[in-house]
Write a protein that binds this DNA or RNA. Structure first.
Lengths: 238, 238
DNA sequence: TGGTGTGAATACTTTCACAGCC
DNA sequence: GGCTGTGAAAGTATTCACACCA
């Protein structure tokens, strides 16, 4: 983000360290060296040591880092030693998938309010939450002191919804809409952009034409996909 | 990615330019200056000019960039002047959401094969595609000459699935699983990591305690969320 | 011995600022 | 007059390499 002492690149890497450390803890490991951690993450040991050094001296020479301690330190740095309430806006395909995603709670995030535009969605109950109308965003977000919003609305609606969330006090936005949000200073945005990710990867691919098989054939190359599936299922259920 | 002439940071920005340019085209705009484009994107004009300059001289002094031309140039750079077939692996909540997402096709990506592990999913038909067993990944991907894979499987399965895709010829992976994939040189990976994004944003938030309201009350602050929803719905349907 | 933490060197990225062109 | 494309400068990030320590 803005110019604090610690570069944002570093901050973005901390969750990866945390994830890997928790994994190692799950496997019963006690300590880890920057070298070993780097292998897991596909980075360098120097980078990891430098990254940690922004926040303190967490390691012991000749030993490495105590995993339990390091996890707690990183959680403290990232303010993850508490649970954060989140407001989800949008209850279409994507919004519903997010609402049902079980990965937030174990990571310290809890969807505390859901907003939708369509009357068909408003009033539905999900995980004990009532889907509220988007007109209520500002009020409810303020009342519940929610600081984090997830935008799962169509591109056209994203900026307006972001404005409402921010008006209610939200300071961090996870944006799934394919638009660049404009936010005042003090508000962080992270974009989730699968299409952009795909489009940047194709740069590195050989631009060979898609195979010249005549269009219209659903299963080129003599591969009968339905048959493949049926046969495999038969085998599996044996 | 690796050391080519053009930095990967630049490549990652191109899809954003493309998206914005298409938006402007939709609105009927003919030309755009680096300055104006920068305002839309929250960057600087200098950066945009530098980025484009890696690939050619697309602008006209005193005029700016012809939007139509620039779009075509960027599409060519990113190899987006064709349609790319994609293999989707995983058909749980997330995989199904991805399979039904309507945003791929208009952007030049087409899900051409879907794989799942669970027998309950295998054989289902989605958009005219039969969900295939993961055992068939390598063969089918090779037969269909698919270069791009989307991983929507649990963390534990991700590396193994990635290996199979790569064995079949995939060279680009969009990874939704919360793990660091290890891939040979020549394979690009982009991670979609909402949890990591949230965890890095909380660094910037005030670490204030969640409001001290006694636990257990589903609607603190006298806000009756169900009532809010019901009332709003009543008003909307009037 | 085996590892950290960190100055110093290197590599990469962004920004400035202006000549040059339409 | 207005805006591009780009050398050169400034600013960031990564890596090296080693003093130091358990």
């Amino acid at each position: 983000m803005r110019n604090g002492a610690v570069p944002d690149v570093v901050i973005r890497r901390l969750p990866l360290y945390l994830r890997t450390l928790r994994q190692l803890r799950r496997e019963g490991q006690q300590a880890v060296s920057s070298e070993e951690l780097a292998r897991f993450l596909g980075t360098t040991a120097a980078q990891i040591r430098r990254d940690f050094s922004y926040f303190g001296r967490f390691g012991k020479q000749g030993y490495g880092y105590d995993i339990e301690t390091l996890i707690r330190e990183l959680e403290a740095v990232l303010n993850l030693d508490r649970t954060w309430d989140v407001a989800l806006v949008g209850y279409g395909n994507l919004g519903q998938a997010i609402a049902h995603y079980r990965g937030f709670e174990p990571n310290g995030f809890r969807i505390a309010a859901i907003f939708a535009k369509s009357p068909e969605h408003i009033g539905q109950v999900v995980n004990g939450l009532v889907v509220l109308p988007e007109t209520e965003i500002e009020r409810v977000v303020r009342e519940l002191a929610i600081r984090i919003g997830i935008l799962a609305v169509p591109a056209e609606a994203a900026q307006e919804v972001a404005d409402k969330l921010i008006a209610g006090g939200v300071r961090a936005l996870l944006n799934y809409a394919p638009v660049t949000l404009h936010v005042p200073p003090g508000v962080v945005v992270r974009d989730i952009d699968p299409i952009g990710a795909l489009q940047s990867m194709t740069y590195y691919l050989e631009p060979q034409e898609p195979r010249p098989s005549a269009d219209g054939t659903p299963a080129p190359d003599g591969l009968n996909l339905a048959a493949v599936a049926a046969e495999a299922k038969r085998q599996a259920s044996r």
